[in-house]
Amino acid sequence: MRFLVACLGLLASSLLAAAELNLELPTGTRTWDSGALLAHPQARDIEIPADVAYKRAMHYRAVPLASLLDGVQAGDHLQVVALDGFAAELPAAPLLAQSGARAWLAVEDPARPWPALGTGKPSAGPFYLVWSDPQQGDIGPEQWPFQVARIRLLEPVATRFPVLLPASDASADVRAGFAQFQKNCLACHRLNGAGDSAFGPDLNLPHNPTEYFSGDFLARYIRAPQSLRNWPQGRMPGFSREALSDRQLGQLLAYLRHMAGRKVEPGR
Protein backbone atom coordinates (compact mmCIF):
# COMPACT_ATOMS: atom_id res chain seq x y z
CA MET A 1 0.00 0.00 0.00
CA ARG A 2 2.78 2.43 0.88
CA PHE A 3 4.46 1.62 -2.43
CA LEU A 4 1.21 2.38 -4.28
CA VAL A 5 0.77 5.68 -2.46
CA ALA A 6 4.36 6.63 -3.25
CA CYS A 7 3.87 5.80 -6.92
CA LEU A 8 0.69 7.86 -7.09
CA GLY A 9 2.51 10.76 -5.45
CA LEU A 10 5.32 10.55 -7.98
CA LEU A 11 2.81 10.41 -10.83
CA ALA A 12 0.98 13.50 -9.55
CA SER A 13 4.28 15.36 -9.18
CA SER A 14 5.41 14.43 -12.68
CA LEU A 15 2.12 15.58 -14.18
CA LEU A 16 2.35 18.91 -12.38
CA ALA A 17 6.00 19.32 -13.34
CA ALA A 18 5.01 18.78 -16.96
CA ALA A 19 2.34 21.50 -16.82
CA GLU A 20 2.76 23.97 -19.65
CA LEU A 21 1.78 27.58 -20.21
CA ASN A 22 1.32 28.65 -23.82
CA LEU A 23 1.96 32.27 -24.80
CA GLU A 24 0.83 33.70 -28.14
CA LEU A 25 2.46 37.12 -28.37
CA PRO A 26 3.70 39.63 -30.97
CA THR A 27 7.10 37.97 -31.00
CA GLY A 28 5.62 34.53 -31.65
CA THR A 29 4.45 31.51 -29.70
CA ARG A 30 6.35 30.21 -26.70
CA THR A 31 5.71 27.46 -24.18
CA TRP A 32 6.96 27.59 -20.59
CA ASP A 33 6.82 24.63 -18.24
CA SER A 34 6.55 24.79 -14.46
CA GLY A 35 10.19 23.97 -13.85
CA ALA A 36 11.47 26.66 -16.17
CA LEU A 37 9.22 29.28 -14.58
CA LEU A 38 10.22 28.31 -11.05
CA ALA A 39 13.85 28.75 -12.14
CA HIS A 40 13.17 32.03 -13.97
CA PRO A 41 15.77 34.69 -13.02
CA GLN A 42 13.01 37.06 -11.87
CA ALA A 43 11.08 34.47 -9.83
CA ARG A 44 10.64 35.42 -6.19
CA ASP A 45 8.55 34.59 -3.12
CA ILE A 46 5.55 36.88 -2.66
CA GLU A 47 2.78 37.26 -0.09
CA ILE A 48 -0.79 37.94 -1.19
CA PRO A 49 -2.72 39.15 1.90
CA ALA A 50 -6.24 38.70 0.48
CA ASP A 51 -6.12 36.03 -2.20
CA VAL A 52 -9.27 35.94 -4.35
CA ALA A 53 -9.32 32.19 -5.01
CA TYR A 54 -8.43 31.02 -1.51
CA LYS A 55 -10.03 33.92 0.39
CA ARG A 56 -7.11 34.17 2.81
CA ALA A 57 -3.46 35.14 2.85
CA MET A 58 -1.30 33.01 0.55
CA HIS A 59 2.40 32.62 -0.19
CA TYR A 60 3.58 31.94 -3.76
CA ARG A 61 6.67 31.54 -5.88
CA ALA A 62 5.89 33.88 -8.74
CA VAL A 63 7.27 35.66 -11.79
CA PRO A 64 6.36 39.26 -12.73
CA LEU A 65 3.94 38.70 -15.60
CA ALA A 66 5.41 41.63 -17.52
CA SER A 67 8.71 39.73 -17.81
CA LEU A 68 6.94 37.05 -19.90
CA LEU A 69 5.02 39.37 -22.23
CA ASP A 70 7.64 39.91 -24.94
CA GLY A 71 6.63 42.55 -27.46
CA VAL A 72 3.35 43.46 -25.73
CA GLN A 73 2.57 47.19 -25.60
CA ALA A 74 0.43 49.09 -23.09
CA GLY A 75 -2.33 49.64 -25.64
CA ASP A 76 -2.63 45.94 -26.49
CA HIS A 77 -5.31 43.51 -25.35
CA LEU A 78 -4.73 40.06 -23.89
CA GLN A 79 -6.90 37.08 -23.11
CA VAL A 80 -6.03 34.68 -20.29
CA VAL A 81 -7.63 31.26 -20.75
CA ALA A 82 -8.07 28.70 -17.96
CA LEU A 83 -8.36 24.93 -18.17
CA ASP A 84 -12.11 25.06 -17.42
CA GLY A 85 -12.94 27.51 -20.23
CA PHE A 86 -12.81 30.71 -18.16
CA ALA A 87 -11.45 33.42 -20.49
CA ALA A 88 -10.48 36.72 -18.86
CA GLU A 89 -10.26 39.73 -21.18
CA LEU A 90 -7.52 42.04 -19.92
CA PRO A 91 -6.06 45.31 -21.18
CA ALA A 92 -2.29 44.99 -21.32
CA ALA A 93 -1.40 48.20 -19.48
CA PRO A 94 -2.14 46.94 -15.92
CA LEU A 95 -0.32 43.67 -16.66
CA LEU A 96 2.81 45.58 -17.67
CA ALA A 97 2.79 47.99 -14.72
CA GLN A 98 5.92 48.04 -12.57
CA SER A 99 4.36 49.90 -9.65
CA GLY A 100 0.98 50.16 -7.92
CA ALA A 101 -1.14 47.10 -8.65
CA ARG A 102 1.29 44.56 -10.08
CA ALA A 103 0.50 41.31 -11.92
CA TRP A 104 2.35 38.11 -11.03
CA LEU A 105 2.20 34.63 -12.47
CA ALA A 106 2.20 32.30 -9.47
CA VAL A 107 3.67 28.89 -10.28
CA GLU A 108 2.74 25.77 -8.33
CA ASP A 109 5.78 23.83 -7.17
CA PRO A 110 5.35 20.03 -7.45
CA ALA A 111 7.32 19.65 -4.23
CA ARG A 112 4.95 22.00 -2.40
CA PRO A 113 1.52 21.74 -4.02
CA TRP A 114 -1.10 24.34 -3.21
CA PRO A 115 -4.21 23.38 -1.24
CA ALA A 116 -7.40 22.37 -2.99
CA LEU A 117 -9.95 25.11 -3.65
CA GLY A 118 -12.57 23.02 -1.89
CA THR A 119 -13.70 19.50 -1.20
CA GLY A 120 -13.26 17.43 -4.34
CA LYS A 121 -11.75 20.38 -6.21
CA PRO A 122 -8.23 20.86 -7.60
CA SER A 123 -5.86 23.62 -6.55
CA ALA A 124 -5.58 26.99 -8.29
CA GLY A 125 -2.49 25.71 -10.11
CA PRO A 126 -0.45 25.03 -11.97
CA PHE A 127 -0.48 28.74 -12.95
CA TYR A 128 -2.44 31.56 -11.32
CA LEU A 129 -2.52 35.28 -12.14
CA VAL A 130 -2.36 37.14 -8.82
CA TRP A 131 -1.96 40.82 -7.93
CA SER A 132 -0.01 42.68 -5.31
CA ASP A 133 -1.70 45.90 -4.13
CA PRO A 134 -4.77 45.29 -6.35
CA GLN A 135 -6.68 48.14 -4.69
CA GLN A 136 -4.31 50.61 -6.36
CA GLY A 137 -5.45 49.56 -9.82
CA ASP A 138 -9.19 48.84 -9.36
CA ILE A 139 -8.47 45.16 -10.05
CA GLY A 140 -11.64 43.06 -9.87
CA PRO A 141 -12.02 39.38 -8.90
CA GLU A 142 -12.46 38.25 -12.50
CA GLN A 143 -8.96 39.56 -13.20
CA TRP A 144 -7.47 36.80 -11.02
CA PRO A 145 -7.77 33.77 -13.36
CA PHE A 146 -6.43 30.52 -11.93
CA GLN A 147 -5.58 27.17 -13.57
CA VAL A 148 -4.24 29.27 -16.43
CA ALA A 149 -3.32 27.39 -19.62
CA ARG A 150 -2.83 30.10 -22.23
CA ILE A 151 -2.22 33.84 -22.60
CA ARG A 152 -2.70 35.34 -26.03
CA LEU A 153 -2.68 38.70 -27.78
CA LEU A 154 -6.02 39.50 -29.41
CA GLU A 155 -7.93 42.41 -30.86
CA PRO A 156 -10.13 44.26 -28.33
CA VAL A 157 -13.52 42.78 -27.47
CA ALA A 158 -15.48 45.43 -29.38
CA THR A 159 -13.54 44.62 -32.57
CA ARG A 160 -13.87 40.85 -32.26
CA PHE A 161 -17.51 40.82 -31.17
CA PRO A 162 -19.45 43.81 -32.57
CA VAL A 163 -22.78 42.24 -31.52
CA LEU A 164 -21.83 43.12 -27.94
CA LEU A 165 -21.77 46.83 -28.70
CA PRO A 166 -24.60 49.04 -27.45
CA ALA A 167 -26.39 51.31 -29.91
CA SER A 168 -24.50 54.39 -31.03
CA ASP A 169 -26.99 56.63 -29.21
CA ALA A 170 -26.87 54.64 -25.94
CA SER A 171 -26.59 56.57 -22.70
CA ALA A 172 -23.34 57.12 -20.85
CA ASP A 173 -24.45 54.61 -18.20
CA VAL A 174 -25.04 51.94 -20.84
CA ARG A 175 -21.64 52.56 -22.42
CA ALA A 176 -20.00 52.40 -18.98
CA GLY A 177 -21.97 49.21 -18.34
CA PHE A 178 -20.44 47.64 -21.43
CA ALA A 179 -17.01 48.21 -19.87
CA GLN A 180 -18.23 46.61 -16.64
CA PHE A 181 -19.60 43.66 -18.60
CA GLN A 182 -16.21 43.09 -20.23
CA LYS A 183 -14.42 43.31 -16.91
CA ASN A 184 -16.77 41.28 -14.72
CA CYS A 185 -18.96 39.03 -16.89
CA LEU A 186 -17.34 38.14 -20.21
CA ALA A 187 -14.78 35.82 -18.62
CA CYS A 188 -17.61 33.37 -17.87
CA HIS A 189 -20.55 34.38 -20.07
CA ARG A 190 -21.34 35.02 -23.70
CA LEU A 191 -23.95 37.48 -24.93
CA ASN A 192 -25.72 37.13 -28.29
CA GLY A 193 -23.54 34.05 -28.73
CA ALA A 194 -20.44 36.25 -28.72
CA GLY A 195 -17.43 35.60 -26.53
CA ASP A 196 -14.75 32.97 -26.06
CA SER A 197 -15.74 31.59 -22.66
CA ALA A 198 -17.27 28.15 -22.35
CA PHE A 199 -17.98 28.49 -18.62
CA GLY A 200 -21.41 30.05 -18.04
CA PRO A 201 -24.69 30.61 -19.92
CA ASP A 202 -25.40 33.27 -22.52
CA LEU A 203 -26.77 36.46 -20.93
CA ASN A 204 -29.09 37.46 -23.79
CA LEU A 205 -30.18 34.25 -25.51
CA PRO A 206 -32.77 32.96 -25.24
CA HIS A 207 -33.56 35.46 -22.48
CA ASN A 208 -31.73 38.28 -20.77
CA PRO A 209 -31.71 38.04 -16.94
CA THR A 210 -33.34 41.48 -16.76
CA GLU A 211 -36.36 39.83 -18.39
CA TYR A 212 -36.90 37.16 -15.72
CA PHE A 213 -35.52 38.76 -12.53
CA SER A 214 -38.12 41.21 -11.22
CA GLY A 215 -37.55 44.17 -8.93
CA ASP A 216 -34.11 44.27 -7.37
CA PHE A 217 -33.57 40.50 -7.48
CA LEU A 218 -30.96 40.59 -10.24
CA ALA A 219 -28.85 43.10 -8.32
CA ARG A 220 -29.20 40.94 -5.21
CA TYR A 221 -28.26 37.84 -7.19
CA ILE A 222 -25.08 39.50 -8.50
CA ARG A 223 -24.14 40.54 -4.97
CA ALA A 224 -24.76 37.11 -3.41
CA PRO A 225 -25.95 34.34 -5.76
CA GLN A 226 -26.37 31.74 -3.02
CA SER A 227 -28.72 34.04 -1.10
CA LEU A 228 -31.30 33.59 -3.88
CA ARG A 229 -30.41 30.15 -5.19
CA ASN A 230 -28.89 27.97 -2.51
CA TRP A 231 -27.24 25.50 -4.87
CA PRO A 232 -24.03 23.71 -3.80
CA GLN A 233 -22.95 23.29 -7.43
CA GLY A 234 -23.31 27.00 -8.18
CA ARG A 235 -20.04 28.50 -9.42
CA MET A 236 -20.87 32.19 -9.77
CA PRO A 237 -19.07 34.33 -7.17
CA GLY A 238 -20.74 37.23 -5.46
CA PHE A 239 -19.51 40.74 -6.27
CA SER A 240 -18.94 42.85 -3.18
CA ARG A 241 -19.21 46.63 -3.22
CA GLU A 242 -15.41 46.77 -3.09
CA ALA A 243 -15.25 44.79 -6.34
CA LEU A 244 -18.29 46.39 -8.00
CA SER A 245 -19.68 49.59 -6.53
CA ASP A 246 -23.41 50.33 -6.49
CA ARG A 247 -22.86 52.84 -9.29
CA GLN A 248 -20.97 50.30 -11.39
CA LEU A 249 -23.60 47.64 -10.73
CA GLY A 250 -26.27 50.08 -11.90
CA GLN A 251 -24.28 50.69 -15.09
CA LEU A 252 -23.96 46.95 -15.70
CA LEU A 253 -27.71 46.48 -15.26
CA ALA A 254 -28.35 49.39 -17.63
CA TYR A 255 -26.22 47.66 -20.28
CA LEU A 256 -28.01 44.33 -19.82
CA ARG A 257 -31.44 45.96 -20.05
CA HIS A 258 -30.32 47.79 -23.18
CA MET A 259 -29.02 44.59 -24.79
CA ALA A 260 -32.29 42.77 -24.08
CA GLY A 261 -33.64 44.86 -26.96
CA ARG A 262 -30.68 44.03 -29.20
CA LYS A 263 -30.85 40.24 -29.44
CA VAL A 264 -28.87 38.83 -32.35
CA GLU A 265 -29.01 35.12 -33.09
CA PRO A 266 -25.57 33.57 -33.83
CA GLY A 267 -24.85 33.46 -37.54
CA ARG A 268 -27.24 36.27 -38.44
Rank of each mutant, 00 (worst) to 15 (best):
K55Q: 14
G75E: 11
A57H: 04
A243C: 04
A170N: 05
G85H: 06
V174I: 15
V63Q: 07
P225W: 13
A53K: 07
Q226D: 12
A187H: 14
Q136V: 04
A12P: 02
N184K: 09
R190C: 06
Q147G: 03
A219Q: 13
G125N: 08
T159L: 09
F127R: 01
L78E: 04
L37M: 07
V5I: 14
Y128W: 02
A176M: 04
P209A: 05
F213S: 06
A176C: 06
Q135G: 05
P206M: 08
L117T: 02
P122W: 08
A39H: 02
A82M: 07
D33C: 05
F3C: 03
E24R: 03
G234S: 10
L16V: 11
P134C: 09
T29A: 12
D173I: 09
S214Y: 10
G9T: 03
E89K: 05
F178S: 00
L21I: 01
L96D: 03
Q233P: 11
P266K: 13
A260Q: 14
P41A: 00
Q180V: 12
L228D: 01
W104N: 00
L252H: 08
V148F: 10
P49S: 06
M259I: 11
A12W: 14
L218D: 00
C188N: 04
W104D: 01
Y54M: 09
L78T: 12
T159F: 07
G195S: 02
A43E: 08
N208W: 09
M58S: 04
D51N: 15
D51Y: 09
W144E: 08
L205D: 12
E211A: 13
P225Q: 08
R247D: 13
L78C: 02
Q135K: 05
V5H: 12
M259Y: 07
A149D: 15
L153H: 10
S67Q: 08
Y128R: 06
E155N: 06
Y128E: 01
L95K: 02
D76G: 03
Q79H: 10
Y54Q: 11
V80T: 07
G267Q: 08
Q79A: 05
R175F: 13
S132K: 09
T27Q: 15
F239D: 08
L90P: 04
L21R: 04
D51V: 08
G261V: 00
L165H: 03
L228A: 02
A194G: 05
V130Q: 09
L16A: 15
R112M: 11
D138V: 09
R268F: 09
V174W: 02
P225H: 10
S214T: 00
S245T: 06
R257H: 13
N184G: 08
D138G: 04
V72N: 03
A243S: 14
W231D: 15
G100H: 01
L256G: 02
F3R: 12
R247F: 09
A74I: 14
L252N: 07
P225I: 06
G75V: 15
P201Y: 10
V264L: 14
T27N: 15
P266W: 12
Y60V: 00
H207C: 01
N204V: 06
P113K: 10
W131G: 05
L154H: 14
V5G: 11
L244Q: 15
